[in-house]
Simulated scan of single mutants.
Amino acid sequence: MRRFEWRFLKLKGKLVTINWVRDEIKDLNKVEHGGEIWRYRGNREILDFSSNVNPLGVSSKVLKVLRKSLHLIKFLPDNNSFSVREAAARYLGKPVKPSNIIVGNGSTELIHLFTQTFVKRGEECLIPVPTFSEYEVAVKKTGGKPCFLKLKTSTNFTLKIDEILRCLKPKKTKAIFLCNPNNPTSQTFSREELVKLVDEALNTNIIVFLDESYIEFSDENSLANLVNKYPNLFVLRSLTKIFGLMGLRIGYGVASEKLVKFMFKAKIAWNVNVLAQVAAITAFKDRDHLKKAKNIVDKERKFLFKELGKIRGFHVLPAKANFFLIKIKNLGFDSSSLKNRLLKHGILVRDCSSIRGLNNYYIRVSIKKHWENKRLLEALTSVVGIHS
């Protein structure tokens, strides 16, 4: 023990030269996300437009069951989240069964669990960018090699399936990561396009990781009901966005029974807390809450697209989900500066400068209730102004 302490003191300040840390971890860059409300809240009210969540928040039915379930904290949660899987299967409908579902501590845990289970060192994973940053991080942590397909600003970051197919390398590409609707661009693929991709990928033994965390906010149809037909398909779903359970952290994945069994082998024990499981079961049943939220998003999307287009220097990309990506290059200052100026008005937006494939001239704003959206527009008018 004394010998170790002497060595530690002697090498203090040079510990990076000791090979304690895996290279995959050493080389990771810090990932930034939206939802930094705790950093800025303090003693003032902040409207958070940086986090893409149900504008109605948590349903009253979920809050009620949570209050009644606090006594369950003294128990270990169900390690397999079986009741949640049953509720999710009923929510998705046949042919999905509980055995097709795995539950995670937020959908992000399942992204990392997927790569830990299936991506080997040196295997390539295709990731169109810009998209959610955690795909890249998860691939790198396992020693995999992310290969990026950069989308074009000239096409508003839309992507054709044929472009993806041309980038696939048989025997080299292990997985494709797609987000539908895509975060942060709010663009979508049709079901027909995605089925074509999954089918072609199956012929070359490539897994398709399809993130549908925002699917309920769009008009697109899920591919979850195809997981038994396509053994190479993994569909990620979120309960935090559409059901407003951001702070409880719970999501789920849908795949063939065989894929799910392997992921269960890699999953840590008791990964989803008891209150998150209780909330999820109730949330799945509250279809009225989802319908109200979807109606608000549909209505406010049209309102915001029109009004945001009036802001000086803004190029607003058409949105298919519950958020907008906005290019501000003609504004006169960058995304970090705009974010800080809006914070003085009690508004938090997502600075997209840290997202691969974008730069410091993009922001993302979520769609909220009408009065909140009007507050955003008032703040932007004050800070930026409108077209003359």
Results as ranks from 00 to 15, higher is better:
F4L: 15
E5P: 00
L9E: 15
K14P: 09
L15T: 07
T17K: 15
N43H: 11
N54V: 04
L56Q: 14
G57M: 12
K64L: 13
L66S: 06
L66V: 10
K68D: 15
S69G: 14
H71M: 01
H71Y: 04
S83T: 07
A88Q: 04
A88M: 07
R90D: 11
H112A: 01
V119G: 01
K120F: 10
T131L: 03
F132N: 04
A138R: 10
P146E: 01
F148Q: 05
L149M: 05
S154I: 02
S154C: 00
L168F: 00
I176F: 13
Q187L: 12
R191M: 08
I206N: 02
I206W: 04
I206R: 01
V208Y: 00
F209S: 03
Y214P: 02
I215F: 05
N221K: 15
L226E: 09
N232I: 07
F234W: 15
S238T: 09
K261P: 08
F264A: 08
K267A: 05
N271W: 02
N271Y: 04
I281K: 06
K285V: 02
H289E: 13
N295D: 14
F314M: 09
F323D: 02
F324Y: 12
G332N: 13
S336L: 12
K339V: 11
G346K: 13
I347T: 07
L358I: 08
N359L: 14
W371E: 11
L377C: 05
S382K: 15
V383Q: 06
I386Q: 15
